[in-house]
Nucleic acid binder design. Sequence first.
DNA 1: CCTAGTGTTCTATTTAACTATTACACTATA
DNA 2: TATAGTGTAATAGTTAAATAGAACACTAGG
Lengths: 125, 125
Amino acid sequence: MKFDDKVPIYYQIKQHLYHEILAATLKPGDKLPAVRQLAVDLTVNVNTIQRALSEMITEGVIESRRGKGNFVTQDTARLAQLKEQLVMAQLALVYAQLHALNLSDDEIIESLKRYIEQKGAAQND
Amino acid sequence: MKFDDKVPIYYQIKQHLYHEILAATLKPGDKLPAVRQLAVDLTVNVNTIQRALSEMITEGVIESRRGKGNFVTQDTARLAQLKEQLVMAQLALVYAQLHALNLSDDEIIESLKRYIEQKGAAQND
DNA sequence: CCTAGTGTTCTATTTAACTATTACACTATA
DNA sequence: TATAGTGTAATAGTTAAATAGAACACTAGG
């Protein structure tokens, strides 16, 4: 995994895991890879994995069972809520950024459409 | 100015200045506030300001004139190019994030529209 | 009971960002 | 030429992220 050195690695790992869970690559109740395995896979230290996981445990996304492993919560309502929050946060961010560049609401929507069309033309998804 | 502690301060300052320039709050040829003044305004050290500025000088956005000050470049073509790049980069980012959450192209566009409508309803812009 | 696999915690060290401080270089102007 | 305002650069110290390594706690299975 490649990291952006502008953002703490533990935070990027957290976002990575969030995406896997909210995109249902990891389903409710699924067991995550062992922390030592994740550390190898992502070529970081166990402590860095642990830091990402401990925040997600606090947030109710992951349940930890000592001696067994880490598991995706089965609280699907919580997951749906978090997904909606994440989508809205992303949109709010990009909207604020583009609005700050003096793009109107319509221009923002249009430029997104243009981007998607260009993307589709450049490479079939 | 408030900073996100997940991202280096110098980098946030750079983005902040980019926005002011590309939104034409600071126009081509305009003089920027003195580095020591910026340091006071943004409550950071001069070196942190300098680091942001030196990258922007390398990128051709700002011209430095020793003893006089820092000035926005008058190369409007360069500015237009950078603005387009920045907009596209923002869109690419949010698209990738939402796509990774299994939202289709249409759903991404629709959710942006919904966000903007909600925003307009919640607070007149 | 022992062992392997798991999560958890602690200490020490390294590195990069940021700060504080000082000094230097150049420009304009009184 | 003296002074104030500007950018530039170097040094030293602080802090947080990340690493390395070790130890501890719990579970399952032979």
